[in-house]
């Protein structure tokens, strides 16, 4: 019982994990992109659309990456080049992405993805790791996108902390002016990471439309983009904490339903509140401790005007 719950929790965590990692590297570049929900929906609908028409799961995933990246690119042009307000632009992107997905998806509402797409949901056991008691079947008997999710966390963690580019990126997010003065191309870093982050959000959306429920429905993401935004804060901008947070919130998401099936009643509304309540708690704790490494990138949400240095 417990094991099957945890297996399901990993699946529920994946859209959150992709979106959270995408938002995390975006915020590391000093840009707060509240368009996560919109980019996830753009990725979900384009992934589904391409999957439906080609039957090829990898083209579908590629399309979702591109769709998320395009959404993020719009945001990047507006906030980096045109220096518009990041919060407003992000919210607009969410509204735009929601409408875009409904509009594109109108024609295939309720349609199931073709058989070829099912390859993405096939559970693969990793030899060796699968034999680990308890953890093996939970973590290492999953679909392919779960494994790429693990790998993504490792790559992002190494990139941010162990590479020169990661150091430069953190410099841009902490103090863009200083980064600029030391010869880092601020605009390039911001564009690159916003767009890659958007692509990851798009992939998170595609997980919902191609793996979780491979039938197109309007608004498949159903608010998980906002949980991802909260998760980045919850994880204090650290990839490995984001992984843990995604598992916890993904598990909480389905915990209420599991308890109900066992005859224990817990309000689903309460469960839906928990990610945000936990995030507020973390913000309060980290603000009180005031440890620099747990705080947000100092220039987060601030547009960088070179002329104003």
């Amino acid at each position: 019982m417990m094991v099957s719950f945890l297996i399901a929790a990993v699946g529920a965590a994946m859209p959150l994990l992709y979106a959270t990692m995408g938002e995390l590297i975006t915020e590391k570049a000093g840009n707060l992109n509240l368009g996560v929900e919109g980019m996830m929906l753009m990725g979900a609908v384009m992934g589904f659309s391409v999957g439906l028409h080609t039957g090829n799961p990898y083209l579908a995933l590629l399309a979702s990456l591109i769709a998320g990246a395009i959404g993020a690119a719009i945001y990047a042009v507006l906030t980096v080049s045109l220096m518009s307000n990041q919060v407003v632009t992000g919210l607009t992107l969410t509204i735009f992405g929601t409408g875009f997905s409904s509009f594109v998806g109108e024609g295939f509402m309720g349609t199931a993805a073709p058989a070829g797409i099912k390859a993405l949901s096939t559970k693969i056991a990793i030899p060796g790791l699968y034999q680990i008691p308890v953890l093996g079947p939970i973590l290492f008997h999953q679909d392919i996108l779960v494994y790429t999710g693990y790998i993504m966390v490792i790559i992002v963690a190494i990139y941010l902390n162990k590479t020169k580019m990661g150091l430069n990126l953190r410099a841009v997010g902490e103090n863009a002016a200083a980064a600029d003065a030391s010869g880092i191309n601020v605009s390039f870093y911001k564009y690159a990471h916003i767009i890659v982050g958007g692509a990851m959000c798009g992939l998170g959306g595609a997980y919902m439309s191609l793996v979780t429920v491979p039938v197109w429905q309007a608004n498949v993401v159903a608010g998980r983009g906002w949980i991802a935004v909260a998760l980045v804060i919850f994880a204090s901008w650290k990839p490995w904490k984001a992984l843990v947070g995604a598992f916890v919130f993904g598990g909480l998401n389905i915990l209420g339903l599991r308890l109900q099936s066992m005859g224990i009643h817990i309000s689903q509304y309460l469960v839906d509140m928990l990610p945000y309540a936990a995030t507020i708690l973390i913000v309060i704790i980290s603000t009180r401790k005031n440890r620099k490494e747990d705080m947000n990138p100092a220039d987060l949400g601030v547009s960088y005007f070179r002329e104003e240095r």
Binding site: S4, F5, A8, A12, P15, M208, T212, V213, V215, Q217, A218, N219, V220, A222, R224, N253, I254, L257, R258, Q260, S261, S267, Q268, Y269, D272
Partner: peptide
């Protein structure tokens, strides 16, 4: 199982899995 939501494909699937 009540999902407290008319339209959330992933939650409805998770409820059925439970």
């Amino acid at each position: 199982i009540y999902t407290q939501n008319w339209h959330d494909p992933a939650q409805e699937k998770a409820a059925a899995e439970a």
